[in-house]
Computed example of a mutant assay.
Amino acid sequence: MLEPAATVKIFQKQADPKIVEAGTAIFQAGQPANYMYGILDGEVELQVDGKTVEVLSASSVFGIGALLGHANRPYTAIAKTTCKLAFLDQQRFLFAVQETPMFALNVMQTYSDRLDRLAHSL
């Protein structure tokens, strides 16, 4: 079974992943949400109000709320290290879910685990 980030890479429209240098914002809280991301290499910090709430590493996915009806980003994502990111827009995401239902289950599990960790850290 593929990890969610590998599935994102397979279904992305663009042939090449996005390279983001360390310290660069991938997106900011409040910005329009158009893509979800899968980390192929590197680490990404998720921040709320300037506070790091989680650091994600390779094989993790983030930003999926963009594809499920959230108009704007609720948090900021910053490359902690230079990152290689796969990305999907809503059309490609829905296609990936339809073609590989386990992808949807893996993404839901990832987000469920993230919410559990966040709840226990408060």
Rank of each mutant, 00 (worst) to 15 (best):
residue 99 E to C: 09
residue 62 F to Y: 01
residue 110 T to C: 15
residue 28 Q to C: 05
residue 61 V to N: 00
residue 100 T to K: 11
residue 3 E to D: 13
residue 32 P to G: 01
residue 57 S to R: 12
residue 48 V to F: 04
residue 73 R to C: 01
residue 76 T to S: 08
residue 85 L to C: 13
residue 91 Q to C: 06
residue 9 K to L: 06
residue 43 E to S: 03
residue 20 V to C: 06
residue 115 L to V: 14
residue 87 F to H: 08
residue 1 M to Q: 13
residue 96 A to W: 11
residue 75 Y to V: 07
residue 68 L to F: 14
residue 121 S to I: 13
residue 59 S to P: 05
residue 37 Y to W: 04
residue 106 N to W: 13
residue 8 V to M: 06
residue 89 D to G: 14
residue 14 Q to G: 03
residue 60 S to V: 05
residue 42 G to W: 12
residue 16 D to L: 11
residue 115 L to Q: 02
residue 73 R to S: 07
residue 104 A to M: 14
residue 21 E to L: 15
residue 105 L to H: 02
residue 6 A to P: 00
residue 119 A to M: 07
residue 113 D to N: 13
residue 103 F to S: 08
residue 51 K to Y: 13
residue 82 T to W: 15
residue 120 H to R: 04
residue 109 Q to P: 02
residue 105 L to F: 13
residue 119 A to F: 08
residue 98 Q to A: 13
residue 51 K to M: 07
residue 70 H to R: 03
residue 44 V to N: 05
residue 47 Q to C: 09
residue 51 K to G: 04
residue 38 G to F: 15
residue 82 T to M: 15
residue 65 G to V: 09
residue 16 D to P: 07
residue 12 Q to P: 00
residue 94 L to D: 00
residue 85 L to Y: 14
residue 10 I to N: 12
residue 65 G to H: 01
residue 95 F to K: 10
residue 28 Q to A: 14
residue 23 G to M: 01
residue 4 P to I: 04
residue 16 D to E: 15
residue 4 P to E: 11
residue 115 L to T: 05
residue 26 I to N: 04
residue 85 L to E: 03
residue 92 R to L: 12
residue 36 M to V: 06
residue 9 K to C: 12
residue 120 H to Y: 06
residue 51 K to S: 04
residue 56 L to K: 05
residue 4 P to K: 02
residue 7 T to S: 12
residue 68 L to D: 03
residue 3 E to K: 11
residue 32 P to K: 05
residue 84 K to T: 11
residue 69 G to E: 03
residue 94 L to G: 04
residue 44 V to H: 00
residue 84 K to G: 04
residue 66 A to H: 02
residue 116 D to G: 09
residue 68 L to P: 05
residue 101 P to T: 14
residue 65 G to W: 01
residue 13 K to V: 10
residue 94 L to H: 10
residue 85 L to R: 09
residue 92 R to W: 10
residue 31 Q to F: 02
residue 1 M to K: 08
residue 81 T to K: 06
residue 88 L to T: 06
residue 15 A to H: 06
residue 82 T to K: 15
residue 26 I to Y: 00
residue 115 L to W: 06
residue 115 L to E: 03
residue 14 Q to E: 10
residue 117 R to L: 03
residue 73 R to P: 00
residue 36 M to H: 08
residue 118 L to R: 00
residue 43 E to P: 06
residue 11 F to Y: 11
residue 57 S to V: 15
residue 67 L to Q: 08
residue 80 K to C: 06
residue 8 V to H: 02
residue 10 I to K: 14
residue 72 N to E: 10
residue 75 Y to W: 06
residue 51 K to T: 04
residue 111 Y to C: 13
residue 50 G to N: 09
residue 121 S to T: 11
residue 78 I to P: 01
residue 98 Q to I: 02
residue 103 F to K: 15
residue 8 V to K: 05
residue 37 Y to F: 11
residue 15 A to C: 03
residue 70 H to Y: 06
residue 110 T to D: 12
residue 104 A to Y: 14
residue 64 I to M: 09
residue 91 Q to M: 11
residue 116 D to C: 13
residue 93 F to I: 05
residue 87 F to R: 09
residue 44 V to Y: 01
residue 59 S to I: 09
residue 13 K to C: 08
residue 19 I to L: 08
